[in-house]
Design a protein around this nucleic acid. Sequence first.
DNA 1: CCTATAAAGTTCAGGCTTAAAGCAACGGGT
DNA 2: ACCCGTTGCTTTAAGCCTGAACTTTATAGG
Lengths: 171, 171
Amino acid sequence: MNDAAVLPLDAETKVIERPSDHKDELRLWLRLFSCKMLIENEIRRRLRDNFEITLPRFDLMAQLDKTPAGMKLGELSQRLMVSNGNITGLVDRLVEQGLLDRQPAPNDRRAQLVKLTAEGRRSFRAMAASHEAWIAEIFGDLTASEREVLMRLLGKAKDAARAAITDSGKG
Amino acid sequence: MNDAAVLPLDAETKVIERPSDHKDELRLWLRLFSCKMLIENEIRRRLRDNFEITLPRFDLMAQLDKTPAGMKLGELSQRLMVSNGNITGLVDRLVEQGLLDRQPAPNDRRAQLVKLTAEGRRSFRAMAASHEAWIAEIFGDLTASEREVLMRLLGKAKDAARAAITDSGKG
DNA sequence: CCTATAAAGTTCAGGCTTAAAGCAACGGGT
DNA sequence: ACCCGTTGCTTTAAGCCTGAACTTTATAGG
């Protein structure tokens, strides 16, 4: 997933002469992947070193911080794009840490509403400030307009991906 | 990590009036993340449904397919950007499946060389063809020049991230 | 040769993640 | 009221992943 792994095209994997291969799309995907991996690993390390928290827990708290009214577990699962059962365990651990609060949802005895506790919110806000600065630092070498273009193209890629997914009958 | 979670800026999280916050970098990161997640989940599903293989195993085999001479475990760990111990287990399972082959490295009794077996190579090549087509399908809505720009900007982001990481004394 | 340091892998505990199966509650149709 | 498909969540088994401690081998300096 590293450039060094992709760029040195040897004789076997030469791209040029083939009429309709798709090596460049593949390279784009690999670069997207490695870019994400690089940043994520660093953020994970800093969250651990500075706040002794894992990235998944931080991400979950970030979602909750945006919705003070609380969220249902299934909603969290959609936002974080992970499986149902994953959220159950993650919330369990955060509740045990005293950062989250589960309560029955009104009008639906199946569902639960999850919120940040006061401590959870305080704790998250402190971390979020640093986190935001780290991200800004990492993307600092890009100009505002480059960031804008990147944002737009990633949006387009995302839409295209979603279209490809529903076409293939994921539902 | 979904746009729906990011775009609806309510009163609390308004961006405009603040002079030097970094919400746009954050949104860029979130979009990169969700874009990767969307594609990865779909690829994982297709690999599973069509070939009964996991994404990490496929990725590892992809690295080995590029270097017929074989790779050391540490090299794999760097390329895939995952930890050492992770590779050990992944290789164990692939060897057990008969897709990989471990052998002692020449001139260094600590190291091992890992290669695809004949079956592993055959198996990978079959999967790789489909995989490449899927990626092309997913990125199909982007024009060649859009892909080129995206590639360049992601490269720049990657370099910037690497710089930020080594600056902070990761060594 | 001897020692110190570094490097390559492994092991371990703990946590993250998925897919699949299961349970309870909802809601529409009859 | 009853059935039935759906939804919200939990549970389980298996696999993925990390960080840290550890073993073995290599390498450099005396």
